[in-house]
């Protein structure tokens, strides 16, 4: 692939369209107040443009997992993702877990309540989203697999022990 053929340079996009919690979102790209700037992170767009403030920002630099959301089922950090690069993706946030009609909580959320798997609760949405990604890929994780899946999530209160129990208990294929 030599670089000399067909000399076009890369181009910017004018709109970005993706889904958030099953709903289609289309945003114009630009610097007007109603638009999304190309430098906006997904975390910023979720919180400030779409009003989905359940996604928390702790370090805003890729180190703590608080802003974890799912993109196409994978846990990613929304503070390290450009909104303009989400074209065509399916984004799921903590607000998208409960059943939209009945309001019934996701089994993971219920398990976090039942196990008091939080203290200050600020890191909890990110924890639940990392766990959600894990259970999506592995219905019966071992304790070590739970720890591995959550190893990028910061919690300073040390809710870890309760979280591990909550996730294992919520695993559909788990024995607990």
């Amino acid at each position: 692939m030599a670089a000399t053929n067909k000399g076009k340079t890369a181009k910017p996009a004018k709109v970005v369209a993706f889904s958030v919690n099953g709903k289609a979102v289309e945003l114009q790209i630009g610097s007007e107040p109603h638009q999304v700037e190309s430098s906006h992170t997904l975390a910023h767009t979720l919180r400030e443009t779409l009003g989905l403030v359940g996604t928390k920002i702790t370090c805003d630099n890729g180190a703590c997992g608080s802003c974890t959301v799912l993109i196409d089922g994978k846990a990613i950090l929304s503070c390290m993702t450009l909104t303009v690069e989400c074209q065509g993706k399916s984004v799921m946030t903590i607000e998208g877990l409960a059943d939209p009609v009945s309001g019934r909580l996701d089994p993971l959320q219920q398990s976090f309540i039942d196990h008091t798997a939080f203290q200050c609760g600020f890191c909890t949405p990110g924890m639940i989203m990392s766990a959600k990604a894990l259970l999506g890929e592995n219905a019966a994780p071992t304790e070590d697999e739970v720890k591995e899946a959550l190893s990028g999530n910061f919690c300073r209160c040390i809710s870890h022990y309760h979280v591990v129990k909550a996730v294992l208990a919520a695993a559909p294929g788990g024995s607990e």
Binding site: R47, L52, V53, G54, T55, K56, I57, T93, I94, E95, L97, A98, L105, Q109, Q110, F112, I113, T116, F118, G121, F122, T124, P125, I128
Partner: peptide, 16 residues
């Protein structure tokens, strides 16, 4: 906890 449901749904309101 009284705030449990709010915390696990992202509904707990922190300052920001």
């Amino acid at each position: 906890r009284q705030d449990a449901a709010a915390i696990v749904t992202g509904g707990a309101q922190y300052l920001d």
